[in-house]
Simulated assay, not measured.
Amino acid sequence: MSKFNAFMKGSVKAAEEVKMKLDRFPEEIVLRPLTAGEADKINERCFVNKTGRKGKQERSFDVVRYNRGVCSASIIYPDLNDAALQESYGVRGAEELYAEMFLFGESAQILEKVTEISGLNESLDDDIEEAKN
């Protein structure tokens, strides 16, 4: 018997979906946490080559595109890949729909919730405080 049984896929708790209510919509949206691999793939898509000093190519990271990619990948409901939903907003693609569908403040709320459920809001200070209690 392996000493790693606790880490085997069948032993790990499933990531929980979270419902979130936004004032403008009559129904809640449903979010899921992202895996590190999913975040890495989104991260890689967000680097672009730009001409820098003296014509030299430099890699630049598009933070807005990354945040939009993370949020749109986390939304389970509504399905941002649904053609009818995209058509109703006059866009194509999940990230384009996300950008058109949600207001700036709503987008910030979604990003905050996604980072929270994906475990990015926990800091060393939180761990220290928890250990004290």
Score class of each variant (00 low, 15 high):
E87I: 03
L85R: 05
I110R: 02
G69K: 00
R53D: 13
S74C: 09
C46R: 01
E106F: 01
E38W: 07
A73Y: 10
V63A: 08
C71F: 04
T51V: 15
I110E: 06
A39H: 08
A108L: 08
Q86K: 06
V63G: 01
R45W: 07
A73M: 12
I110D: 05
G52L: 04
I110G: 00
G55S: 05
L111V: 12
A94H: 06
K50L: 13
G37P: 04
L85Y: 08
V70N: 07
E58K: 13
L80R: 05
A39L: 13
F102T: 00
G90S: 00
S72F: 02
N81D: 13
K50T: 10
G55R: 03
L97A: 06
N67W: 03
V64A: 13
Q57H: 09
A84Y: 09
F47R: 07
Q57N: 13
S60K: 12
D40H: 04
G69D: 01
D62R: 07
R92V: 14
L85P: 07
S74P: 15
D40C: 08
G37L: 09
N43L: 14
A83D: 10
S88L: 12
C46W: 03
V91T: 07
E44Y: 10
G37Y: 05
V91I: 03
R59M: 15
V63L: 02
R92T: 14
Y98T: 05
F102H: 00
